[in-house]
Design a protein around this nucleic acid. Structure first.
Lengths: 231, 231
DNA sequence: GTCTATATGAGGATAGAC
DNA sequence: GTCTATCCTCATATAGAC
């Protein structure tokens, strides 16, 4: 298993988020090249910093010390590059969620673990997550179905979370008066948007962030007994 | 008080987020034109849907039923348009926060009100909030200091929130073991990112969303007494 | 695998007629 | 206030030499 898209899956079910592509060396296909991987990483950083559209193939090439025409020896379009950035991240994420769900544990424990997984991806996949957030709607708006897998992956992840939240409610661990889907979305957003401001080296690392958030998520920020405070 | 940038401020201190611009009819200056306002609204929708860069001046003009050249009678650049979209939103938001802080009330009450204000902007300023999130880093990366006010406004808002959180801790209403700045960021992110999925007409309106979030924020999603659960 | 050279198109913006 | 016509720049992508 040398494929760059699955080798970080920690041995989990390795079903990729996306089917085989139809273009030159689409993500999830073909033998991985280290040179190619390196170019993808450079491009990801630029995409994250300036946005996908604002990043030119000339800049990517310059960053790699070659000319823009040479990039097309490795990729058949700029879209193919960003495609590979995103699938690499999504395959890793979904794979790790699957592992978490395979463990046995009560819903609250599993949900905590899923929160930890989310935060733990912030550093290794910072660029990809940033691109996903900033360029999601643009990529989705492109003609063709090339980026439909983004929505499919999102749906699969949502199902995983919502199911655990519902199980937690059924087991009496989570309050019955919160909306599972709404709660999932707020958790998800809180985790991913942290890429905007999280920088390694601050007071808290991502593990610390995760524990802080788990505390607030389950128990809230108010002191004392649960209140019926009227704001 | 006919200026579009301040007329939604409910009578609060009307200090705009931004100084007078230097370009043709920059936001917060000059007599407002309804035609111009309309064009800004059309552009905002396109910016939100496709991203600022992916939206061409030709598309904006077409949406308005004119040709691209005619747009330059109203604005001297595409940047001026997005500038106006953002300042209109920020002036409204900051103005309303200022009003909330002028009321007397304990920190928890004020914080709840600030959460409500945030969610209440989701509908009227959906496009602007979307643009802020998706194009923030690109706009900030442009040469010149034109969009520096984005950071200034962000800083002012952060100070407002963090101060109330600290007051809440000092008053014993909020737990002392959560980080004020971190907590603020998570609240902020949770509110704004909701523009990505919130659509009017669903089960909950923005007021309902706000109450749901206030509940979870203060009391958490876990049932029963505060737990020291080991996830 | 990279370079040179270039096709091809689209974008923001302008000038001046109406 | 809008249109016509157009400039200029810069983008992605290609072809073929090395």
């Amino acid at each position: 298993m040398e494929d760059v898209n699955t080798r970080k899956n920690s041995g989990a079910t390795a079903t990729p988020v996306k089917r085989q592509g139809t273009t030159k060396r689409a993500a999830s296909s073909g033998p991985a090249s280290e040179r190619r991987d390196h170019l993808v990483k450079l491009a990801a950083e630029l995409f994250a910093r300036k946005g996908f559209q604002a990043t030119t193939v000339r800049e990517i090439a310059e960053e790699a010390g070659i000319l823009s025409g040479s990039l097309y020896h490795h990729f058949d379009s700029k879209e193919t590059i960003v495609d590979e950035v995103l699938t690499t991240f999504l395959d890793d994420l979904v794979g790790r969620y699957r592992v978490a769900l395979e463990q046995d544990g009560d819903p609250r424990t599993i949900l905590s673990e899923m929160v930890r997984i989310g935060f733990s991806t912030l550093e290794p996949h910072r660029a990809a997550i940033t691109v996903m957030q900033n360029d999601w709607s643009y990529l989705r708006s492109l003609p063709g179905d090339r980026f439909d897998y983004l929505v499919r992956a999102e749906d699969e992840v949502e199902r995983m979370w919502v199911e655990q939240i519902k199980l937690g409610q059924a087991a009496g661990q989570l309050r019955a008066d919160v909306d599972p889907k709404l709660t999932y979305r707020m958790i998800r957003d809180t985790i991913w948007v942290a890429v905007r401001w999280f920088r390694p080296g601050g007071r808290l690392n991502t593990a610390g962030l995760a524990e802080h958030y788990i505390t607030v998520l389950f128990d809230g920020v108010a002191t004392g007994e649960r209140s019926s405070h009227r704001g």
